[in-house]
Amino acid sequence: MRFYALLVYLFLYIPIGIIVLFSFNAGRHASELQGFSIKWFGIALSNPFVMEALKTSLIVAGTTALLSSIMGTMAALGLQNVRGIVRMIFDSLIYIAIMIPGIVFGIATLVALATALDFINPMLKNIWPIILGEAPRLKLGLISIISAHTLWTTALATVIIRARVQGMDRSLIEASIDLYATPWRTFYQVTLPQIFPGILAAALLNFTLSFDDFIIAFFVAGGRTTLPIYVFASIRRGITPEINAIATMMLIVSLTLLFTSQGLLRKRK
């Protein structure tokens, strides 16, 4: 039994280990170890395409994490007060949103935004004042990736924060109301501090999800390139040690955020 478990763990970690190992490869060929070197990290970090993609990914993941944790907190607090059919609708929406494959989100957001843009762009052209010159053509890009990622991660944020809301000490809130605190002040001074670790954990997890996502961004990115899209395109052209270095850095980002968020969820639970 123990031996079997060991084999499964090896199966889980050897592939990741190989990528990390080969990212320190000194040789020019991706799959032949020729001594230790960190030069590929330097090459990756000085590649303007990589840096541009990294910047896009960081903006997308940061905004997604922020928006989804705000919306998730609001939904988690709101759902406390509803019962019956409304509750059921929201519960199944959340359930569905967590369960369906990313590709469905990609297609849905692509269709929604492309349809909206077909409608908005001609309208914008008509109402645009001539003094300002050519009317801008809105197209898919940063905003569409953020919208799609927020849609995809808000459900998860709601679930995580809700667990925290349910474990919250209600008597403190009642006390605060009895002492004539305004609802806003009760939220700010009593509720928020209690659920904040949950919110932060959700934000970090959603940052990771958004940062690592390929398929949804691939559908709605328009001309923009996120880091996973860059890596995917590079893999298609051929495996290079540079990809291994980028991959290793992406792994480090995910793992750091994951462990921080887990620490937050464990604490004071």
Binding site: L12, Y13, I19, D212, F214, I239, L251
Partner: peptide, 18 residues
């Protein structure tokens, strides 16, 4: 067991190409 799940799916699949 869970940790790999939270790392990039793309990278993990790429590892097997390798």
């Amino acid at each position: 067991v869970i940790v790999p799940f939270w790392t990039s799916f793309l990278i993990r699949t790429y590892a097997w190409m390798f």
